[in-house]
Amino acid sequence: MRIGATTTYRELLDSKPLRAKYPLIAEVTEHIGDLQVRNAGTIGGGLAHADPAADMPPVMLVLDATFVLQSKGGKRSVPARKFFKGPFTTVLKPGELLVEIRLPGPPKGAGMAYASFEQAASGYALAGAAALVAVAKGVIARAELAFTGVAETPFLAPATKPLIGTKGDPDAIGRVAEAAMAGVEANDDIHAGREYRLHLARVAARRALTEALARAT
């Protein structure tokens, strides 16, 4: 599926095909700002802005989206997983626009979920986790987990492998959530200290993976 960069959040919410194929996008969009923000804000603007605590980037990471960037000189495609470089910083070059978001078809029977804890003033995530879990023949065939709000950029958890081939019991999920924070330099600010933020990220990971697994068919 391809989404134009200037598609508003409202349009995402109103799109039946999108809701059917990527229900997670609609679910997360409902978290973003308020009615006015969703009516005016665009998915491309939000991604290009690269706020390190924005809700949509981790979704793009777990769905393994590809971003089409265009300048006068031509087009190039960049995987979402390589797009975010730092707080409010991306691989976009001067004179280049994000024009399109390409989403590969989700794996068969995949369940997806997002869990986050909001900063009370801004509504952005103190810590949030998106998860995608696909089940085949009664065991987990694929598991993706990504975070926002925790560090300088959204990031994909490298270590979901231990879940593959298992039924995803709570202990295994807990271990993956725990491992995902190993070595992470978590943000520390007036809204959440480092230790609490890491704790929230683990809780979010566990809740997102558990819910995604429950939704997988």
Binding site: A121, S122, I190
Partner: peptide
């Protein structure tokens, strides 16, 4: 009781200077 607090750093800079950080 739950979320409002004006925070200054040690240099007297207001860290909750906008509605993005001050939780009305």
């Amino acid at each position: 009781a739950l979320q409002e607090r004006a925070v200054y750093d040690e240099d007297g800079q207001l860290l909750t200077g906008t509605l993005m950080d001050y939780a009305v």
